[in-house]
Structure formats: C-alpha cells, structure tokens
C-alpha cells in the first residue's frame, strides 16, 4: 500500500534525508549482543568459568589434602564426617581429589587442542593457499589419519608409547591435527578464489601479506570455533586414556583415573564411584554448549 501511495507523492519527498535512527553494530558488537541474549550459553559459560577457577585455586578450595590417605576412612559414602562426597579406596577425600583432578583434566583438554590448532591450522592454510601438488600431498597424508576412528588412534599412539601425561597429550594432538587441517584448508580454499585476493595481488601485496591480512582474518573464525568444539572431545578422550591406564599415572588426581580405580569398589559405594564421571560429563557438556553458542553468535558454518 505504502509503495503505491508513495508514487503519488511529489518528488521532493524523496530528497536525501537523514539516515534512519537505527544503530548499526559492528561485527564484534553484534556477536556480543547475540551472546548477551543467549541465556543457555551464558549459564554454561559461567559453569566453565567456575570449573576453571576451582582448578586454578584448588589449594584454597579443597577441604583436605588430596594425597592424604587414611586406612580407617576407606570407601565411605556421601557426607561421612565432613567428606561431602565420601572417600576413595585409599581413604582420600573425594571432593578434594575432584577439585585437584580438574587441573590435569583441563590441561589435557586444552593443550592438545591448542597445539593441534597451531600446527594443523598452519598446514591447512599452507595447503589451501598453495593449492596444487602441495595441497594434495598434505591432504592425502591427513586422509590416512582419517582412516582411524579417533579413540582408536589415540589409544594406538598412547598405547605404543606407554602412557603418561606427556605421551597422552602428544597422542591427542596427533588425533586433532588432521580435522583441524581440513577445516583450515576448506576455509582457505574458499577465500583464495575471491576477487579481493586477486586485487591485493594486483596492487603488489606479497604472499605473506595476503595471508596475514586477507586469509587469516577469514580462516581464524571457523578454526577457533572448531577448536572450541574440540576441547570437550579432548577432555573426553583424555579421561578415556587415563581410564585405560594410558594417561595420568597414580597418585595424581585425574577424573578418568579416579573412575577407573573406583570401578573395583562399585558394590561398596556405588554412587561415590560415579562422581568423577559426572565431573567429566558436566565439564564436557558445558564446553560443548558454550562452543555451540559461540558458533551461533559468530555465525560460522563449519
């Protein structure tokens, strides 16, 4: 209706007017705006923050020494004498071990992803930007690692090297490099074909400059979002390795390891045995939902 009515108006009405009074937000401001209006992501981001803070300030928060054993208070149920979450098979306080356990679990969740993001991302950008033979060599090599289910590859590498935190992290890093590389390669290949890369080259920009200013800006988004979704996978895989005896070694508190040793006592204190797994689950689901929220807010498609 308004369109037809507008046709009858004298032309002067269409003279340049002030822009409509809507605020136009920049990219990051709109991301922030969307995040602020996403209660689920905010709640789970708060949980992630709590878990991280608990791990960092573990010595201040833990009510007991996580290594202090006690013969008389072995395998006690919830709420036994100040031990809110009971005690484990050596009489150590479960809550304290849980809080300290977050340190190793978070470390093994974040470090492999970080290293794999740098190495895999770099390989992917190089492959995607160079194209041709270089790309084929890199991507076909990655395809070989895709032929292993991820748990199996992590177990194979850690199993052959003999466990320990360092070897566990190395195994997880090797598992994450191929998918990371593929995400970076896809994003780079898409950008490389765009006209403004051509324009930048025509104005005399070198390869390094083009990659730094024009390619990385477009690749970092998907790469970071994908990395954030890998953190939860990494936590799950790392505690799985510890559960199999391939990650953290006793007596260091670690959620996967605690689950594995407490499994023997399942008929004595069934619910205490399930607690470390609940910690893994809550951490993993929180990281997952925060990553999903970030992806939606940043409008990235993987």
């Amino acid at each position: 209706m308004t369109d037809i009515a507008a046709l009858d108006q004298p032309l002067e009405t269409f003279a340049p007017q002030a822009a409509p009074a809507t605020r136009v937000r920049g990219y990051w401001r709109s991301v922030l705006y969307r995040l602020r209006h996403d209660p689920v992501t905010l709640v789970f981001a708060a949980i992630v923050l709590c878990i991280v803070l608990a791990a960092v300030f573990a010595p201040l928060l833990a009510p007991f020494d996580p290594y202090k054993e006690s013969v008389v208070s072995r395998l006690k149920p919830f709420g036994w004498k100040e031990h809110w979450l009971g005690t484990d098979e050596l009489g150590r306080d479960m809550l304290s071990r849980l809080i300290y356990g977050g340190r190793v679990s978070l470390l093994m969740g974040v470090m492999p992803v970080l290293i794999a993001t740098i190495v895999g991302g770099l390989l992917g950008v190089i492959g995607g930007f160079a194209g041709g033979r270089v790309n084929t060599v890199i991507m076909r090599a990655m395809d070989v690692f895709y032929a292993f289910p991820s748990v199996l590859l992590a177990v194979a590498i850690a199993g052959a090297m003999g466990g320990g935190i360092g070897n566990g992290m190395l195994a997880l890093t090797l598992v994450f490099i191929p998918p990371m590389c593929r995400v970076a390669e896809t994003a780079t290949t898409q950008v490389r074909a765009l006209d403004y890369i051509e324009a930048a080259r025509a104005t005399g920009a070198g390869t390094i400059t083009i990659i730094r200013y024009h390619v990385l800006g477009n690749v970092l988004g998907p790469v970071c979002i994908y990395a954030s979704s890998l953190v939860s996978v990494s936590i799950l895989l790392a505690s799985g390795l510890s559960f199999l005896g391939l990650g953290v070694r006793p007596p260091t508190p670690d959620w996967g390891l605690m689950l594995s040793t407490l499994r023997q006592s399942i008929y004595v204190v069934p619910f205490v045995c399930a607690v470390p797994g609940a910690a893994i689950f809550v951490t993993s689901i929180s990281f997952n939902l925060v990553s999903d929220g970030l992806r939606a807010a940043m409008d990235v498609r993987l």
């Binding site: 399942i266 609940a278 689950f281 993993s284 689901i285």
Partner: peptide, 29 residues
C-alpha cells in the same frame, strides 16, 4: 544430541551397572 556428544560412554556404562546390576540386581554387570 548434546548429552550424547558430551557423555563419556565408559561412565554411562558404570552408571548403568550401578543402577541395573548393583541397585536393582536385574542384569549381570
């Protein structure tokens, strides 16, 4: 779906054992 991707399946196994084998004693562990 979110629970599925975040669940450690070995823990789910232990929880199922606690519920069905230890508490209910209905299935072998």
């Amino acid at each position: 779906a979110v629970i599925g991707v975040s669940l450690p399946n070995y823990w789910l196994g232990i929880v199922l054992v606690v519920v069905f084998a230890v508490e209910l004693a209905a299935l072998p562990a």
